[in-house]
Nucleic acid binder design. Structure first.
Lengths: 246, 246
DNA sequence: TCAATAGTGTCTTTGAGACACTATCCG
DNA sequence: CGGATAGTGTCTCAAAGACACTATTGA
């Protein structure tokens, strides 16, 4: 973005970037999906102190030559094997005591993926990488561990997850992010289930269908979903500019 | 937030925070107000390279022991003399080339203030600290300099200003941030002017008044604004919990 | 009295919810 | 045929826009 101007060159060469103490900067990615009628978050068991053995969001240091979003995509690929999905910057958490080692400022991202896109390899499972359903407990969203109890996450990652859910819930109604949680083809009822899961309330069927169809963001395909009962028409998401998903 | 656990202590003591190269972290504050039927942004002329002589947002390095929000409030006070105003984290800009000196990641904040709260001292004016009206040019928001032409700002600060305006515009209708741009007492027409200025369109008077009054966020006072014509009732902003502004 | 702004009453339009209805599949 | 889900027609209600109207001041 910013290109050095000729008159700045001399100053730049004499600039000493070690003059100030610098915090560490990391990215953490809150990868969310919808499955089994619940929002689910991808967590990873920590193998090193601090918080060894506790669950945390995938994350890592930002390298000196990569953008924040590039760092988030790299971390996502390295730690979960997922690529080319919806990713949005969420919030930057910088409380001086959020990491007991040293000053670490983390730029948190939310990522959304249809659950079919994530293949948990045996090797990943060995690292205790898995989906945690999220339940609303006393007004706070918390991932539920295998024991059925709410997990306390490492660092301030519990707060990051809560913030991510707020963001997704808020943007659900006036953006098209819901489609990022669905496969390429889906039925109107499937979109409605995604909305109902995230908003945690039932929606009126007729009004919901009207709204989606009148928004002009889906296109019917020739296929239908069969299985037991009346088959349901399949749709694809189309961007406002007319582009379809790959 | 995160308190060190006993079992982490040994690890913490052996941790070397110089192991990784660290970027610099700054905060930049986009201080906005409404005056003369325009959104205005506070800019400051740079006295050092890079971009010496160009205008930029107030900003500065985050100290190792202060939170991001504390840093933003400190910068705001040091560079503009303003304290105790609405402040909200906006977005973190971290393109590797956004600062030609070295890697600088900046956490941008939006701040809102009623224009009467800002007193530009002679000393501040000598530093070329002043309000720039913002105009929409070719879909992009840009501050208009004294010459009447759109100013190109230092670094990526033009992008920060655009992002800030988008944020304020988006939150105007479903939050109470508009009141942060008004003095303690105001008329309904004055609120409407703030909305119209930020949204850049006329609003229907009857519907607007209904909406504000039915939202229950203002309380009439005994005073009225006189001046030439029919006096207008004065109102105060009341939080949902009933608290009034100081 | 007039100009100018404050403030109101009411009709229309729009979109969401409620709810009952029809349609189509499988067993 | 009956159970189950897909999909529709229509009534009601709430909120926003349009617009015309009344109210109150100072000059």
């Amino acid at each position: 973005v910013a290109t050095p101007r000729p008159e700045d060159r001399e100053f730049l060469e004499s600039y000493d970037s070690t003059e100030f103490a610098h915090p560490s900067v990391t990215v953490d990615v809150c990868l969310l999906t919808v499955a089994d009628a619940a929002l689910q978050v991808m967590l990873l068991q920590r193998v090193n102190p601090p918080f060894e053995g506790m669950f945390a969001l995938p994350g890592g240091f930002v390298r000196m030559d990569e953008s924040l979003e590039d760092a988030a995509r790299r971390v996502l690929l390295e730690e979960t094997g997922v690529r080319d999905i919806y990713l949005e910057q969420l919030y930057t958490f910088g409380d001086p005591s959020r990491d007991p080692r040293t000053r670490v400022i983390t730029v948190a991202y939310v990522a959304l993926v249809p659950i079919e896109r994530v293949i948990l390899t045996r090797e990943a499972q060995a690292r205790f990488l898995c989906w945690f359903p999220i339940a609303e407990r006393r007004g706070e969203a918390a991932p539920i561990g295998p024991s059925g109890r709410a997990e306390t996450l490492a660092f301030d990652h519990g707060q990051i997850v809560s913030t991510a859910i707020e963001r997704v819930r808020g943007k659900l109604e006036y953006t098209t992010i819901a489609f990022q949680l669905l496969p390429r083809e889906f039925t109107l009822t499937e979109i409605q289930r995604v909305f109902e899961t995230i908003l945690e309330r039932k929606l009126a069927k007729a009004a919901f269908r009207r709204r989606i169809l009148e928004a002009g963001v889906v296109r019917p395909t020739s296929g239908e979903r069969r299985g037991g009962h009346r088959p349901a028409r399949l749709y694809r998401f189309v961007e406002r500019n007319g582009a379809e998903r790959p």
